[in-house]
Nucleic acid binder design. Structure first.
Length: 519
RNA sequence: GCUCCGGUCGUCUAGCGGUUAGGACAUCGCCCUUUCACGGCGAAGGUCGCGGGUUCGAAUCCCGUCCGGAGUACCA
């Protein structure tokens, strides 16, 4: 039997990191076994339905490159793939009828107020809360018929068998047992006629021939209802795999406070999809050996359910940064620039940075200015249009020095600006020394004499100046030059940087540096 | 309260009765070097939550306990 898995989000909001990992596992698992990955939209909650949500899913999934063989956007033999449409098609009505006839479900006519009252009573008396039968589990057919005839609204509940154990099977944890007397009768069909998750998801999983259900650990609590439902229908259940949750650095569920929780925000921050997938796969799963850097193909080739862990994992952004920096370094300069431009040209990147507010600024550093970050990235875009070759060289030099695509804006700034900002401290430290005017003169003369100086040429030039001046170390010649040319005390190798800058920029910057010497 | 789940360096993890408990991120040091990175090498960091068993032998099996988490909706 071939593997069929499904990602079944509820269109109520954004696609967050935890959900992304679940789909990643679906996708990779299906790919590993040549199976089918299915997208199903669980829009049975009219109140929380958010029409923008489905587009958010599609956009996010498209960005990370997770594809589906069946779903509302591509169709398939088991459609429709939206539960609201399945409801219209009468699918749930048909199957709830089966349950009703078998006596595994019943109509309950309590009002919302009555249920609230009951729950309050249970809480006050420290009893387990929930509906354990009320007035309707054992009501006579006449009583039910009467209530129905009177037009009273009702829900349909699952009749959980009493006085027995429900022995479920979770792939990761093995046997998980529940005392059926602690399980309230869950609602299967709401008063508005819509099915609940408990009903719709199980019916659909069966009808769509899902072989493995990968879902969040938070479902374990309601797992026994689902298990019993399969029993009551007489269906063989799929393999249930409850994946551990991803928590923030403080051990609590991932939220805004931990940085971004929306997947597209990571894209906007300059993380690469490959790195994000690599990183996220490693939370709660391991290939069983020591590999940590995995391409998507390797992920697929080595993925197995056995590598899944039961305990929750923390989202450690530092590790993501490492993986991301690594991927950036592994790209050819050309490919890297391509990725950078794709990133900059994604509308949400600009939107994200322009609206960015630094909520937890570092104590000793000024808060991050999103508008400035965008301004720098925008400059990169302009530079690409103007002189792509020059930009590519600059990118190549900075690849080892950044961790996200967004970092390139600042890293490459001094290459692009006619007059890069000067670090005042650096100017103070290096421009006061008496040999500096002569140094600048020497470079100027050499560049004018030979505009085509290459890396070796610049090295020769500066070392020549060093020996001429009798300096033991290269520092006194290299540092002032670097400050004069870049405004900074750090960056790529000076000779390669000069070779890239070229004679015109060098001359212009030397001239500017000279004005700072006198003042 | 009740029901479940979980617990190996700060973090992600390997481990499935016999290992000096391995790797990675982060941290620190050294090397490379004109700087910053990258890279290389190395260090520190774990009485495997705790307490009992079982066993010649336990991170690994059993029981208890503590702590953390999830659920407890006509939400998913």
């Amino acid at each position: 039997m071939s593997v069929r898995v499904r990602f079944a989000p509820s269109p109520t909001g954004l696609l967050h990191i935890g959900a992304l990992r679940t789909v990643l596992f679906d996708f990779v698992f299906a790919a590993r076994h040549g199976g089918t990955n299915i997208l199903r939209i669980e829009d049975t909650d009219r109140e929380r339905y958010n029409p923008e949500s489905e587009a958010e899913f599609i956009e996010t999934l498209a960005w990370v490159g997770i594809t589906f063989q069946e779903g509302p956007h591509v169709g398939g033999p088991h459609g429709p793939y939206r539960q609201s449409e399945r409801k219209e098609a009468g699918i749930y009505a048909k199957w709830i009828q089966v349950l009703l006839e078998k006596g595994h479900a019943y109509k309950a006519f309590e009002t919302k107020e009555e249920l609230d009252e009951m729950r309050e009573f249970q809480q006050v008396n420290k009893q387990p809360t929930g509906y354990f039968g009320g007035n309707w589990r054992d009501a006579s057919p006449e009583k039910v018929a009467e209530a129905e005839a009177a037009g009273k609204p009702y829900v349909i509940r699952q009749r959980i068998p009493r006085d027995r154990k429900v022995v479920t099977e979770d792939f990761i944890r093995g046997r998980v047992e529940f005392d059926s007397n602690t399980l309230p009768d869950p609602v299967l069909i709401k008063a508005d006629g819509m099915p609940t998750y408990h009903f719709a998801a199980m019916v659909d999983d069966h009808l769509m021939e899902i072989t493995h259900v990968l879902r969040g650990e938070e479902w374990i609590s309601s797992f026994p209802y689902h298990w019993v439902l399969f029993e009551q229908f007489g269906w063989t259940p799929p393999v249930f795999v409850h994946c551990p949750v991803i928590v923030g650095t403080d051990g609590k569920k991932l939220s805004k406070r931990h940085g971004a929780t929306r997947v597209l925000d990571y894209a906007a921050q300059g993380y690469l999809k490959g790195s994000l997938k690599n990183f996220i796969a490693l939370i709660g799963w391991s290939p069983g050996d020591d590999r940590e850097l995995l391409t998507e193909a390797e992920l697929i080739a080595s993925f197995s359910l056995e590598g899944l862990q039961p305990s929750p994992g923390r989202f450690d952004i530092e590790k993501l940064k490492w993986i991301n920096g690594n991927e950036i370094r592994s790209m050819s300069p050309d490919a890297c620039l391509g990725a950078l431009l794709d990133y900059i040209n994604t509308p949400y990147t600009r939107e994200y940075w322009e609206a960015f507010v630094d909520e937890n600024p570092m104590p000793n550093k000024p808060p991050i200015d999103g508008k400035q970050i965008w301004a720098r990235l925008d400059r990169v875009r302009a530079a690409a249009a103007q002189d792509r070759e020059y930009l590519t060289k600059a990118i190549a030099e900075e690849q080892a020095r950044v961790t996200t695509l967004a970092d390139f804006g600042e890293a490459v700034e001094f290459f692009l600006l006619e007059e890069p900002p000067m670090d005042a401290k650096a100017v103070e430290k290096w421009f006061g020394q008496s040999h500096v005017p002569a140094l600048l003169d020497t470079i100027e003369a050499a560049v004018k004499a030979n505009p085509n100086l290459d890396i070796d040429g610049f090295q020769e030039l500066l070392i020549g100046f060093q020996t001429e001046q009798g300096f033991e170390k290269l520092g006194p010649v290299v540092h002032p030059t670097r400050v004069a040319l870049t405004g900074k005390t750090f960056g790529p190798g000076l000779y390669q940087l000069m070779a890239i800058l070229g004679p015109d920029r060098i001359l212009a910057r030397l001239a500017r540096a000279r004005t700072l010497l006198t003042s």
